[in-house]
Design a protein around this nucleic acid. Structure first.
Lengths: 104, 104
DNA sequence: AAAACATATTGACAAATATAAATATGTGTG
DNA sequence: CACACATATTTATATTTGTCAATATGTTTT
């Protein structure tokens, strides 16, 4: 089992909230600092910080600290991992076509 | 914008819960009926039904009704859509390398 | 060192979600 | 048609999650 159930939920939790999805859209134009994201999103600073933590935990976003600023960007490697993960969990290895059911 | 933020959250909500991820693992062996899933999972029938609804809403799982039984399977088309969606939301279209930040 | 600033953390609360018991719906069978 | 059975829905509740205010941490500037 390449990915644990828990790992999978952590990865895709990044994409389960509309605000976080919107943050991805902002990061698609390239690296952005937290203050920039804060201006664009209708969120308070602590809430943004909370979402950025979830995004970084997922591996889909990378945080780079530079002085007092945090710069965030989409991780190509993280995206690759998520892609592999999605492919792995949706792959069907069926050989038989009949549905396994409790009523025989 | 090919996918709305809302659509994206609905798709990936399927993979945000450990029980639902486990259901994917069961379905990877081929189509299964609800009663079979219920035997394998440590859930009550209403809870399983609730999760199956979320999975079907995501498009990643298909429900097929046959008499009084519901047969569930992973949707190859749904998986393809999710893949495209993941690719789309993690794609970076940056031309500039410098980080856009509020401090100029 | 003090002040100003950017971000993170804590604590409290509201909203959303997962869960199960009870009930409803729909389907096959006697 | 009555009954048994599989699944869905409703209702209530516990847990999780998103949110913000207040505060803490760490960095730069004066």
């Amino acid at each position: 089992m390449e990915f644990s159930n828990k790992q999978i939920t952590v990865i895709f939790k990044a994409l389960c909230d509309e605000n976080r999805v919107q943050i991805f859209r902002l990061l698609q134009n390239g690296e952005r600092c937290a203050c920039h994201l804060l201006e664009e999103m209708a969120l308070t600073q602590p809430t943004l910080s909370h979402h950025m933590k979830i995004l970084c935990d997922s591996g889909l976003v990378i945080g780079r600290k530079q002085g007092k600023w945090m710069h965030y960007s989409i991780s190509a490697e993280g995206a690759e991992v998520a892609m592999d993960c999605l492919k792995a969990i949706t792959a069907v290895t069926e050989s038989e076509s009949a549905s396994k059911c409790c009523n025989k």
